[in-house]
């Protein structure tokens, strides 16, 4: 019954299953800042032996655990779900745990610096509070009126699909901290908060859309978006963020959502 699969099995990608680690020397150029030591940020180079199939997070751990215990960064799940380790790697916002070394040209120095637009507190750690405050400000929770049903609220598969993309957000801030408008004006809600609002505005069960739209109609709201698509490119979850922002803009004009 499984002969077809068997053939496929026996030809499983050799690359993925090769056990020998081919170590190469990689230079990591890391932006360091510790106000306990100096008020100046500096670049520091570390050379380490890495298997190119390892993650940038593995490299940061190797540096911290074997070379310099003071190197500081946030991380937790290490597979792109918790959103702790967004950073600028070779000038682009990415999650360190979802970026394999082989995918970013390890033959040149790899630069790693904190995400932009949020105050750097130490090395790769930034102040996330303004980011989360913007998220909380868009009322990111289901708003309903009337009596609660006994069982679940009904929702068609199509209505559920309508906002599926924006439910994927892990609040890593890769999008917001890639946005040139946010860099220039930290008051702007930023893409992540708008994604958070979109997730509820387009949820057929929700009745708070008008309130959220008014919040985003503010001078620091959706109209600041210049559609540079940086956010969409930065999103490690593949959310079409710019599209979501445009849908919120359109909803503001048509009042249909």
């Amino acid at each position: 019954m499984s002969s077809a699969t068997l053939e496929k099995n026996s030809s499983a990608p050799a690359d993925a299953e090769s056990t020998a680690a081919h170590l190469i020397t990689v230079t990591f150029r890391i932006r360091r800042f510790n106000p306990e030591v100096s008020d100046q940020a500096v670049w520091e180079d570390f050379q380490i032996e890495m298997d190119p199939k390892e993650r940038v997070l593995d490299a940061l751990h190797k540096i911290k655990w074997e070379l310099d215990g003071t190197l500081t960064f946030r991380r937790s799940c290490a597979h792109g779900i918790c959103g702790s380790d967004a950073m600028r790697i070779n000038g682009r916002n990415r999650l360190a745990c979802k970026t394999l070394i082989k995918d970013i040209n390890p033959h040149k120095p790899i630069s790693v610096e904190p995400i932009k637009g949020l105050t750097v507190l130490k090395d790769l750690v930034v102040d996330m509070e303004p980011f989360f405050q913007a998220y909380r400000d868009v009322m990111p929770f289901l708003i309903t009126t009337g009596n609660e049903p006994t069982r679940e609220r009904r929702q068609s598969a199509a209505d559920r699909e309508r906002f599926d993309d924006t439910t994927k957000c892990i609040l890593c801030a890769a999008c917001t901290s890639s946005c040139p408008v946010f860099w220039n004006d930290g008051q702007y809600f930023g893409p992540a908060a708008i994604v958070g609002a979109h997730r509820f505005i387009f949820d057929s069960r929700d009745e708070g859309g008008e309130q959220r739209l008014e919040i985003l109609n503010d001078r620091d709201g959706v109209w600041r978006c210049r559609t540079t698509f940086n956010c969409t490119e930065a999103c490690p979850r593949g959310i079409e963020i710019t599209k979501a922002i445009q849908e919120v803009k359109r909803a503001l004009i048509t009042r249909r959502f």
């Binding site: 929770f141 289901l142 679940e152 609220r153 598969a157 906002f163 599926d164 949820d203 929700d206």
Partner: peptide, 12 residues
């Protein structure tokens, strides 16, 4: 009821 977006059956 808190808003969790569960997958749905054809009848919702």
């Amino acid at each position: 009821k808190m808003g969790l977006p569960f997958n749905r059956t054809p009848d919702g």
